[in-house]
Write a protein that binds this DNA or RNA. Structure first.
Lengths: 323, 323
DNA sequence: TTGAAAGCGTTACCAA
DNA sequence: TTGGTAACGCTTTCAA
C-alpha cells in the first residue's frame, strides 16, 4: 500500500503539496497537480481514512443509538443513512438491547472521537447523564426530550393522536381504549394528555384498564385484545395503538376471536407503515423519513456551525377498513 | 481533553508504560498500574479511537453493504450488529439504493482502512470486480456467490424451496406458480432448479407465465396476483413467494378479489417473519439470525487468523392457514 | 506556488 | 519492569 510520503518522493514535491492536491486546494499549479495525480493513479493510491480522522479530529461518522431495530424505525434509519451518506457521513449502529451500560458505550465512543455526533431514538439511561455528553458533540433525539440540552426532531404527538381520537369519535365510537408505548417517554405523555383532554371534552367513559402502557409489539397487541374483550364488564369499541405493529396484533386477534372490525371494534394504528397498508388498518401518517432528514441536518449544522434548515412537518390521518 | 502524553508526564512514567496499563500488559508492576490508573481517573482520560486505529492499522469496524434495509434483512442486521458488538466490533451501514458507484464506496472504504471487513447482502456491482477487493480484507456474503474468493453463509435454497414445494403437492395443489426474487442471484437459481426438478418428478403443468422473477415487495405481490388470476386460460392454485412480504401482498389481493385461500389458492411465504405469523401465512423458516452470526464469526476468524466455528443450520416449514 | 517541520495520540520495537 | 523513540499517514502553520 502506497502512502502520501511515497507520492511526494516520487513526484519530487513535498507532502504538503501532495496533500493540497488531495484536498483540492486552489494553491497548486495545474502542471504540479497533473504530475502528482498521474503518480497517484499509477500507484493506485488511496488515502488512509484513520490518518485523516486523527489529523482532522473528525471521523465523519455518526452513531445511531437505539434499543433494537424494528419495523417502525426502519424508515427513520433508512432515511438517516441515506441523507448522511449524501453529505459524506457514515452511520454506525449502536443497539443496546435495553442494557444501559451497552447504551453508554455509544456515548463513550463520542468522547473517544470515534463518532462526531449521535442520533438517539429510545434511550434507557438517565437523561441527565446522557446530557453530560453534549459537550463532546451534537446529540439529536428522535423522541421528545425533557432535557433542553439534547435537541429533538420529534413532532408534537398530542396533535397526531388527537387526529385519531377525533376521527373515531366522529365515526360514533365512544368507549375508547389506548395501547400506549413507553410509559416514561414524552411522546406517550403527549398522547395521554390528548386522550384526557378529549375524554373530558366529549365526556367519554374512562376506564383505567383501557389505557395500558408499554405496548409495542404484535404479540403484546394480541395479548391486549384478549384482556380487553374477555374481561367482565363493559368492552371498549375502539382501540388506538402505539404503532402499526400493535394494531396488526390487535386486528388479528380480534378477528380470530370472531369480533367484527370495524362494526364492533375500531382499530387505529400509528406511523402508517407498509403493514398498515397491507392489512388495511386506519393509521396516522407520521413523516418519519422527513424527521430523520431533519435530524441529520440539525447535526450537520451544529458540526459546521451553520444555521439549521429544517422542514415543517405534520401528521395526517389515513382512513382504511378498520374504522 | 487529556491524552496519553499528559498522563505519562504527570505520573512520572513513560508513554510506553501508560500504554501498557491501557492494554492490560502483564509487564507492569501493580504499584505503577495503580498510580497511573488513579491519574487517568482524575483527568477523566479516554483514549482516542482514531489514534489507536491508525497505530494498529485496524478500526474494529465492519461495513454492511446492502441495497436498502427492509423487513426481511432486519433479523440479519440485528443479529450481526449484536454479535459484532459482543466481540468489540461496530457495524457501519452502507446502502447503495441500487447505485453501483455508491456501493463501490463501501469497498473503497475497506482499502482506506475505515472498515476491517465487509458483509454484503444484495450487490449490484459485477462480482468479479468486487472480488478484487478481497486482498484488502475479508468479505463475506449473505447470498450465495459465484466467485469462490468471496465466502458465503448462504444456505442451500434448493432444499428450503423443496420443502415448500413438497408441502403444497402433498396438500393436493398441482398448478404451482412461483414469485422468484432477483433473477441473477444464485439463491433464485437454486429455487428455480428445485421447481424444475419437482415439476418433472410429479409431471406438473408448467406455464412460463407462472414463474416471474424480480418480485420482492408487497405491491409487486399484489400486482402479480392480478395478472395471474385475471389472465385468460388456466389459473394456478398455489403461489410460492420469494419472501413473506410478497406472500402478504398476494394473500391480501387474492382475498380482495374474492378468491378463497386456501381452498382455491395456496400461498407460501419465505423467511417466516413476524408478518407471516401475524397474517397466518404458511412460510419456510430460514434461520437468518444464525446466518448473520456465522457471517460475523467467519469474518472474525479471518481477521484473527483462527479456525472459524460455524453452526449447522437448516430450513423448516411452518404450516399456517394459507395452505 | 511550494516546502519544512510540527503536530494528531497511539502502539511497538529495542534497549536497559 | 521500564524508557526512548520510531513508526502510523495525514493536515496545517509558518516561511520562503
Amino acid at each position: 500500500m502506497s502512502n502520501l510520503d511515497q507520492i511526494a518522493k516520487l513526484s519530487g514535491f513535498s507532502k504538503a503539496t501532495v496533500s493540497r492536491v488531495l484536498n483540492h486546494s486552489p494553491h497548486v499549479s495545474q502542471a504540479t497537480r497533473d504530475t502528482i495525480m498521474k503518480i497517484m493513479e499509477e500507484l493506485d493510491y488511496v488515502p488512509n481514512g484513520n490518518a485523516i480522522s486523527l489529523s482532522k479530529g473528525q471521523t465523519e461518522q455518526i452513531g445511531m443509538v437505539t434499543e433494537g431495530i424494528n419495523e417502525v424505525m426502519l424508515p427513520f434509519l433508512n432515511s438517516f443513512v441515506e441523507t448522511a451518506s449524501q453529505h459524506g457521513y457514515q452511520t454506525i449502529i449502536y443497539t443496546s438491547g435495553g442494557d444501559p451500560a451497552k447504551e453508554l458505550q455509544a456515548f463513550e465512543d463520542m468522547r473517544r472521537k470515534r463518532v462526531d455526533a449521535l442520533v438517539i431514538s429510545t434511550c434507557v439511561n438517565d437523561q441527565a447523564l446522557l446530557g453530560t455528553f453534549c459537550k463532546y458533540g451534537p446529540i439529536v433525539s428522535w423522541q421528545r426530550m425533557e432535557r433542553p440540552e439534547i435537541q429533538s426532531v420529534a413532532m408534537n404527538q398530542y396533535d397526531g393522536y388527537m387526529l385519531g381520537l377525533e376521527h373515531v369519535i366522529k365515526q360514533g365510537y365512544t368507549r375508547i381504549a389506548n395501547a400506549f408505548g413507553r410509559p416514561t417517554s414524552m411522546n406517550t405523555s403527549g398522547r395521554i394528555q390528548a386522550y384526557q383532554d378529549i375524554a373530558r371534552k366529549y365526556a367519554l367513559p374512562v376506564n383505567p384498564d383501557w389505557s395500558p402502557t408499554g405496548i409495542y409489539s404484535i404479540r403484546q397487541g394480541e395479548q391486549l385484545v384478549r384482556e380487553l374483550l374477555l374481561n367482565p364488564g363493559e368492552r371498549p369499541n375502539a382501540i388506538l395503538c402505539a404503532n402499526d405493529l400493535v394494531a396488526a396484533g390487535v386486528l388479528n386477534e380480534a378477528r380470530r376471536m370472531g369480533v367484527k372490525v370495524p362494526e364492533e371494534l375500531a382499530v387505529v394504528g400509528f406511523d402508517n407503515t407498509e403493514l398498515a397498508h397491507t392489512l388495511g388498518i386506519t393509521s396516522i401518517y407520521n413523516p418519519i423519513a422527513a424527521q430523520a432528514q431533519n435530524a441529520f441536518l440539525l447535526i450537520l449544522s451544529r458540526l459546521k456551525g451553520t444555521e439549521p434548515e429544517q422542514q415543517e412537518l405534520e401528521f395526517q390521518l389515513v382512513k382504511r377498513a378498520t374504522t
